[in-house]
Amino acid sequence: MIKSLFDKVDLTPPVLLVLGVLFLLLPLLPGEFPLVVGTEILILGLFALSFNLIYGYMGQISFGHAAFFGLGAYTSALILRPMIEAGQLGYVGFFLALAAAVPVSAFGALIVGFFCVRLTGIYFAILSLAFGELLFYIVFSWYSFTKGDDGIQGLMAPSVLKSGLVYYYFTLAVVVMAALLLWKITRSPFGFTLRMLRDNQNRTAFLGIDIRRVMLLNFVIAGAFAGLAGALWGPFQRSVSPALLGWHQSGVPVFMTLIGGAAHFAGPLVGSIIYTALNAYVTQFTTYWSLTIGLIILGMVLYLPGGLLSVLDGWRQRRRKAGT
């Protein structure tokens, strides 16, 4: 009975449930460091989940997704900074600053997406990269508004949220809500339309679906969630810098999604756990982090192209074969 249930149901809820419990219990680990790593995993995990709307569900690869993460981070930072300087940072102002990042990033994604969704494949990838770099250079060289290369320092959350433990649980709450919302979106008719046009754009268009509009809407949703993740980043790291919009940052969700598995909703989150935890702990032993992650990615691409969660699919398939 349980066996056959395991074969049939969507694996996402159990995987998310296990992850959720692990995240709830994570602060039991000794010291402050796991909290810092945990918060980073959650924020970057949300960033990667939003990226996977474009990659896993829509079938296009964006190399400029960090632009919306950075846009969100800068929006909340630019609103928070004057409040902190005036010493008037309250909860309402803080939450408004975070919330403001969402429409700003969505608007940025609307403009970039308007052009990107006209293209597919390699051209989509390069155009998104070019827009990302363009935004990076605007933030980098507009010193009077963004402080350029110096970034914006001294960001923080108000009173109770300042503690690492509370901010961790706050981030967990936000990310859980966002992830559930994202999951709902991928299970909606809209989500299935995305999968359909990923598999065949022409046939989807034949059904009378305006594919560009669906793609643009999805791009905007992905940008909005990336912006939310970015907004959480500033108060966590206490600063934002133009690098948050650069191609390096855009590579992060790509790696995470590949490591975890793009075909699974929870894949990017699992990827974030592995990538971020490795980054945090490997860098204590060696400065050759790029070499390490490079070799891991090489191994994944060659031997496990479906990502870590594709192992679950493998088990299921074998079980099914054995059953019949």
């Binding site: 790696f255 050759y288 790029s290 070499l291 490079g294 990615i297 060659l302």
Partner: peptide, 29 residues
């Protein structure tokens, strides 16, 4: 390496060469 990527999906090809950037970059360092 590259030989094994023919016929694979575009993102996988990009990721392989991206991995090479990271590896060769660190070897140079």
């Amino acid at each position: 390496l590259v030989r094994r990527m023919y016929g694979r999906e575009l993102p996988e090809q990009l990721l392989l060469t991206f991995a090479l950037i990271l590896i060769i970059g660190d070897l140079i360092r």
